[in-house]
């Protein structure tokens, strides 16, 4: 399973998100290949899931991956709830 954590530049924000996502995946006992990058790189990258916020999701509208929205990148509870909901489907 491949997960992309996406922000506008792929430098700071997406890395923060990735660190929190990896923590949550660990807690959930899920193994995944997690990468962070900017929104334009992500649009041409194959993945199973893309985690981003609603501001940036608009630019990823035609991507094959399932888009998971997270609004507060620091809120591990929100990330956990979002991941649980999508990964169990």
């Amino acid at each position: 399973m491949k997960i992309l954590c996406v922000c506008g530049l792929g430098q700071g924000t997406s890395l923060i998100l990735r660190m929190n996502v990896e923590t949550v995946l660990n807690e959930l006992g899920v193994t995944a290949d997690v990468e962070h990058m900017d929104v334009s790189s992500a649009s041409s990258m194959q993945a199973d899931y893309i985690i981003t916020n609603s501001e940036l999701a608009k630019s990823l509208g035609d991507h094959d991956a399932t888009i998971i929205l997270v609004e507060n990148y620091f809120d591990q509870e929100e990330i956990k709830t979002a991941l649980e909901k999508h990964l169990s489907q």
Partner: peptide, 23 residues
């Protein structure tokens, strides 16, 4: 410039903004 181009996505949590650019 990043704010103008990409919008306020770096407002990562309530009341918190983390603007940045590339190295």
């Amino acid at each position: 410039q990043s704010y103008r181009k990409n919008g306020p996505y770096f407002v990562l949590a309530p009341h918190l903004a983390i603007p940045h650019a590339r190295p």
